[in-house]
């Protein structure tokens, strides 16, 4: 086993600090050390997007980032999106529009959509479909997801 290193990552506004092996993936840090299991693993190869989290405000696939690379940075996971019991408009919209079935892709999908809406507050259907291209869902056929993102976009604009 390689020498471990202490790292500190702010996750959802809370500072976390652990001794880790340099090869530890960020997704495993989040799931196994910090015990936030809402971030999922679906492929380990950067294709499915189930592991998507926000790193310093950008959506990344945490299965292909080392935990040590996020040392000193800020991470937002699905658990940090709601304000207490108050769901984020995207979470509300996924619920309203039936944008999920098994729910396994959902945390990553919502965070990808979150990044999309930060960049494009008024996305077209086409832009949404391209924006979530890096996230696979086998259950829904994406249509209700697209509807949900559109609905959330409206909600988020209204909030501003």
């Amino acid at each position: 086993m390689a020498a471990t290193r202490r790292i500190t990552i702010n996750i959802n506004g809370v500072s976390t600090s652990h001794e880790v092996e340099p090869r530890l993936l960020l997704v495993h840090y989040i799931r196994d050390m910090v015990e936030l299991t809402g971030t999922h693993v679906g492929c380990e190869t950067s294709v499915c997007g189930a592991c998507t989290v926000m790193l310093n405000g950008a959506a990344i696939k945490s299965c292909t980032v080392l935990a040590v690379q996020a040392d000193g940075e800020e991470v937002l996971t699905i658990e940090g999106l709601a304000q207490g019991e108050q769901l984020h408009p995207l979470q509300e919209a996924f619920w309203e529009c039936h944008g999920l079935q098994c729910g396994y892709c959902t945390p990553g999908m919502i965070l990808s959509a979150y990044q999309l809406l930060l960049r494009l507050p008024r996305p077209t259907e086409e832009e949404i479909r391209h924006g979530i291209e890096g996230n696979l869902c086998r259950c829904t056929g994406y249509q209700h997801i697209v509807d949900a993102v559109q609905q959330a976009a409206g909600q988020m604009r209204a909030r501003r």
Binding site: L36, T37, G38, T39, T77, I78, E79, L81, A82, L87, Q91, F94, W95, L100, G103, T106, P107, I110
Partner: peptide, 9 residues
């Protein structure tokens, strides 16, 4: 079933 799923819980 959705609230627990969309929150990652």
């Amino acid at each position: 079933e959705d609230p627990r799923l969309v929150r990652g819980l």
